[in-house]
Amino acid sequence: MEPFWAVVVGIMFGAGIYLMLRRNLSKLILGLILISNAANMLIMTSAGLTRDAPPMIAAGKETLTGTYADPLPQALVLTAIVIGFGVLAYFLTLLQGAYKSNKSENLDRLGGGAS
């Protein structure tokens, strides 16, 4: 499974970067969403994928036995998703503000005030 997901992650990164390079506000945020999710997928993939093996200790046993999914990357990815969600939502409000005040979605036309 891992090679397949590695390719998927690559495509997501590529698409994200391509979208970010367009001079358009909404494409910018779509690209950022893709990139941050690609990073999350990469954590899952590189930590190894296991199917149908939750890290639960079976009844009557003391430790985990057999193969089981590594719970740590899942915890990491959950945290990363939460953080990414918060930041991207805030970024969306910023973009909307920029759109409302400049009436343009083109990044180049957003007033040069800050450069």
Partner: peptide
């Protein structure tokens, strides 16, 4: 709290004044 406040601010976002300091 965080999600709804972002949601509401998306609807209500407005600038204080149009011109910046620079």
């Amino acid at each position: 709290g965080v999600t709804t406040s972002i949601l509401f601010s998306l609807e209500e976002f407005e600038l204080w004044n149009r011109s910046g300091p620079s």
